[in-house]
Amino acid sequence: MRFLRRVLNMLVVLLFVSLLMFVLVRVLPGDPVGAALGDGATKEQVEKFRVQMGMDKPLQVQYLAYLRGLLDGNFGVSLMEPRDVGTIVRERLPATLELVLCSLALAIVVGVPLGILAATHRNGPVDQASRLWSLTGVSFPNFWAALMLQLVLGAALSLVPITGRITGPPPEHITGLYLVDALLSGNFKAMGDAARHLITPTIVLAVGPLAQITSMIRSSMLDELAKPYVGFSQAVGMPRFLINYKYVLRNAFSSTLTLIGFLFPLMIGGAFVVEKVFAWPGVARFGADAILANDYNAIVGVTLVICLFVVVVNFVTEELYVALDPRIRLER
């Protein structure tokens, strides 16, 4: 029942976003038809194209037609490449997901222990370094970090490829995530290839979130470490390790979980820039191109799919939150 209500909730959000985006792209200045047909198009060609795309009808009629299309899984034709936006997004989504998930994993795997160390060894070297890092990490512009890494790791040291997702033939398509596909099909050559391409964009995208996760874990651990139950556990002789990693971390983690829920959409936003710089064939780069080209259907389509992910991720974090904290669970 609760689940059903959540799903209904999500649908309403998606519907609202679609309406907002649909109207917004059309209200904002810009000439998609001119951009699509080029400067040499005649008046008749433009008119014919507008009718073809249904742009001659009133806005509400266009929107309803769009919604009807969505129900058939039809996102409308992109102006940049004359195919259905849904198909393009489906092709490109795994690349973005692979990048964002790897970055998020990196940020969590490094950020959480770093935050714990910083809190348990307060004012020690790790703490000082992590605080400096938190400050600089959050204020680094993505594109600058990307260019620097390309310059140093890619161009100067030739350790990693500068752009693209893979050099050799991609692994057999199973999930679309190259690392997973390569692993599943035992194609380790492709796996190494894909991993080498992933390293730099993953680091660039993870810089900000890692810094945020570290400082969030640090501050909530410090809050928790001051609570009486910590002193009690020490007084009865429980080991520091168990106190820090079982008792305190469990209580300190909920706020970080919320943060991770927030970070996911932010990272997709970051991917718009990172994918562009690294020529990553993902949906975010498609979205960035669509905005530049004023491609109505592509913009709305990409936004909707990203929105869907955000909504689902929020749902998952909330469920995890409940699983983690019995006080919330008990109130139900």
Binding site: P228, Y229, F232, A235, V236, G237, R250, D325, P326
Partner: peptide, 24 residues
């Protein structure tokens, strides 16, 4: 010193605050 703690029973001031809220 830590090992001696096993022989000391501690009854703290505020029973509500010293139990960890997240564990049974």
């Amino acid at each position: 010193r830590e090992a001696l703690k096993k022989f000391v029973a501690y009854v703290p001031q505020d029973p509500s605050a010293v139990l960890n809220p997240s564990f049974t």
